[in-house]
Design a protein around this nucleic acid. Structure first.
Lengths: 233, 233
DNA sequence: CCGTGTGAAGCTGTTCACAGCT
DNA sequence: AGCTGTGAACAGCTTCACACGG
C-alpha cells in the first residue's frame, strides 16, 4: 500500500528533519536505542507526536525498548530522499545567493550546490568561495537537464522572481526554496517553500508589542487561552 | 478591551504582514477600496480568512464597500509595530550575517540594522556595505541598552548559538530570528523564530520523492523520482 | 443590492490512553 | 515491567453561511 507524500503534512515532514539531526548526534555518541520520550525531551514535543510521525512510514520501533538509533537514522535518510545526493542550483548571485551557496547546510549531507546562476554580466564567471562558477541564467535549462538539478534556491530581486521561477519549473526543477517576496504561480507538481524573511521579522515585531487596545469593542477577558509552553512527554 | 497578542496565532500574524505588503502596492496604484475577496485572490486564500484576521483587531471595513486601502494599511503598520523604527542587531558577521545585514527587507520600512556583532578579532571593525561597523560581541549588552535594540538576528555557528542567545535575552533583547540549527532555551517573554534552512531544504527533498511504499519488513525500496500529478482530496 | 463581521460547522493536526508486543 | 502503535478525544485553525449595516 503506497503512501502519497502529499498526504503527509508539512509539519510532520519538517519534524522528520529534526529527528534526523538528533539521531545523527546520538549515533555519534554511540547510543544504541532511544525512546520516543527521550527524543521528545530534546524538542519540547509530545512523545506520541513522534510515534505518530514515524508510524506513518512503517514500524521502526521495538516495544519495550525504543527505536534503534542507527536503523532509524538510515530510515529517515531514505524517507527524506537524502541517500543519493540531490543537486541544488542557486538562482541569483547577489549577496544572499552567494552566502547561501557557501552555507554549510546546503552543500553537504545529501545536497550539493551544483550551479549558481545570474543574469548580470559582471557576476558571470566569478566564483563562490567553494569554487562554483556563476553561470549566465540562459544556460539554466541545459545545465539542469545535464547535471540532474532537482532543487532551486531562488534569491533574485522580487521583480525577477516569477520569470526566474517559471524558467526553473519549465526546465524540470521539482522544488524551489523561494527567498523572494513574490509568491510563485508554480504548477502543482512543483513544490515551493517560501522563506519570506521580511514576513518573519514583521511577525516578530507584532509579538513584541504590548496588549493591543481594541477600539470601541467589548471583549471578554482573557480572550483565548494563553499558550502554555509546557508539554507533557 | 485589550487584546493579548500571544492569543493571536502565528499564522494570523504572518498573514497580516502579507496583507500589508499588498496594501502598499494597492495604495501606490491609487486604489481606494479593496474587498476581502479581491485581497483573497492575490493570496489564494479564503476571503473569510482575511475578514476574520482583520476583525481580531477592530472593525476596519465598510459593509457593501470593502476596506479603505490607505486606512487599513496604516492600521496594519500600527498593529505590526512598524510605526516606529525597530532596531535590529545582527549577531554573527559571517557570510550569512553580513548578507542579512545588507538585506533590503531588514533595513527599511520600520526596521533598522543598528549593530553587527562578532567575536572574531579579524572581523571586528570591518563594515557592512551600508557602513555598519562590526563590533566585538562583548559590547552587545551595553549597545543594546544604549541604542534600544529590540530584535536580534542570530547567524552564528550552531555551537555558539545558545551562548549568543543567552547573551541576547540577558541584555534585554525581546525577539530573536534564529538562523542556527540550535533550539534556544529562551525565557517565555522572549520570542524566538527559527529559520532553519537545512530543515526547509530537507522538507523539500521529502516531497520530491514519488509514492512511498510502506515497507513490509526490510526490503530496500528504490527512490522513486516519478511524480504523481493528482492532488489529495 | 453588496460586502463585512461572526456564530457554527468542518477539518486537520495534536494529545490522550490503552491494548498488545518484547 | 517498559514502550510502541493506534483509535478516540481534543484543540485550534479554516471555511461556511447568513444577519446586518451601508
Amino acid at each position: 500500500m503506497p503512501l502519497d507524500r502529499r498526504s503527509v503534512s508539512e509539519s510532520t515532514a519538517s519534524r522528520l528533519s529534526l529527528y534526523l539531526r538528533s539521531l545523527a548526534v546520538l549515533e555519534a555518541e554511540g547510543v544504541a536505542h532511544v525512546s520516543s520520550q527521550a527524543l521528545a525531551r530534546r524538542f519540547d514535543l509530545n512523545s506520541s507526536q513522534i510515534r505518530k510521525d514515524l508510524a506513518t512510514f512503517g514500524e521502526f520501533g521495538l516495544r519495550g525498548v525504543g527505536y534503534g538509533v542507527a536503523a532509524l537514522r538510515r530510515h529517515l535518510v531514505t524517507i527524506l530522499g537524502l541517500d543519493e545526493t540531490r543537486r541544488v542550483a542557486i538562482v541569483g548571485a547577489g549577496r544572499l545567493g552567494m552566502a547561501l551557496a557557501d552555507y554549510p547546510g546546503f552543500g553537504s549531507g545529501g545536497f550539493a550546490i551544483t550551479a549558481v546562476f545570474d543574469d548580470d554580466p559582471a557576476r558571470i564567471s566569478t566564483r563562490t568561495r567553494s569554487g562554483v562558477v556563476v553561470t549566465d541564467v540562459s544556460h539554466l535549462p541545459a545545465l539542469v537537464a545535464e547535471l540532474g538539478i532537482e532543487i532551486a534556491v531562488l534569491a533574485v530581486p522580487a521583480r525577477a522572481a516569477s520569470d526566474a521561477g517559471r524558467l526553473c519549473w519549465e526546465s524540470g526543477i521539482q522544488a524551489i526554496l523561494n527567498f523572494t517576496a513574490a509568491r510563485l504561480p508554480a504548477p502543482p507538481n512543483v513544490h515551493v517553500k517560501n522563506v519570506d524573511l521580511r514576513v518573519r521579522l514583521e511577525t516578530l515585531s507584532f509579538y513584541i508589542g504590548g496588549a493591543f487596545p481594541l477600539p470601541g469593542k467589548e471583549e471578554p477577558w482573557p480572550r483565548g487561552r494563553s499558550r502554555s509552553l509546557h508539554r507533557r512527554t
